[in-house]
């Protein structure tokens, strides 16, 4: 069920430092340290405090570290930061898939090319699912079928992924025979 044979899914490599860059920025949806392969002098590291912090902001421990209360806060700060950047920045991104492509979108909007951005999936496999019928985004979907929060349709989560929307496509599973909805399976923990 998790491999539907659809070829629009991204494949991710491990993060390595790109020596052609002059400045290196690591942004993560988690709170852990950057991978060793990146952690050399001059790496900036942006992380998000876990929700157990309940809005408090733990102090950064090292030089170049910065912490955020939420991924949303990080994303907005990143947009302002990239607006003033020059050539030579390398961006390393780690987190769930929707976070990766949200960051990618922000970076692209500010002129970073795809050779200057490196993505690594980690954390939850839960998916953002866009209902193709009503366009509502359903966040954090862990099951093969989800009831759309917008229109109420029972959506099958297709493996078809849009990097632009950072979302998978949801299609009404019982469109042909209304009411014929199989049991949802937990597939994206």
């Amino acid at each position: 069920m998790t491999d539907q044979g659809i070829k629009s899914r991204p494949i991710y490599a491990t993060l390595r430092r790109d020596s052609s860059g002059r400045r290196h920025l690591y942004v993560s949806a988690g709170s852990g340290p950057p991978p060793d392969a990146l952690a050399q002098d001059g790496l900036e590291s942006w992380t998000v405090a876990p929700t157990t912090c309940e809005g408090t902001l733990p102090r950064p421990e090292g030089v170049g570290e910065r912490r955020f209360r939420s991924t949303r806060y990080l994303m907005e700060t990143l947009g302002r930061r990239l607006a003033g950047e020059r050539m030579g920045l390398r961006l390393y991104v780690e987190g769930p898939e929707d976070f990766l492509w949200d960051v990618y979108g922000v970076a692209q909007a500010h002129g970073l090319g795809r050779q200057e951005i490196f993505l690594k999936q980690s954390g939850t496999l839960a998916r953002r699912v866009q209902c193709v019928h009503c366009k509502t985004f359903n966040e954090g979907v862990t099951t093969t079928i989800v009831r759309c929060a917008g229109c109420g349709a029972n959506l099958f989560v297709r493996d078809h992924f849009s990097r632009r929307l950072s979302a998978f496509q949801g299609v009404k599973i019982d469109a042909e025979q209304p009411g014929d909805v199989p049991q949802a399976e937990r597939a994206y923990p």
């Binding site: 044979g5 659809i6 070829k7 629009s8 899914r9 866009q130 193709v132 366009k135 297709r158 493996d159 078809h160 992924f161 849009s162 990097r163 632009r164 929307l165 496509q169």
Partner: peptide, 22 residues
């Protein structure tokens, strides 16, 4: 197929759902 979903995709991405041909 949905333009609204597929817009911006590369050639292999927007053909992703087609079976057997890849």
């Amino acid at each position: 197929w949905s333009l609204d979903f597929d817009i911006g995709m590369s050639f292999h991405e927007w053909h992703g759902p087609v079976p057997l041909a890849h």
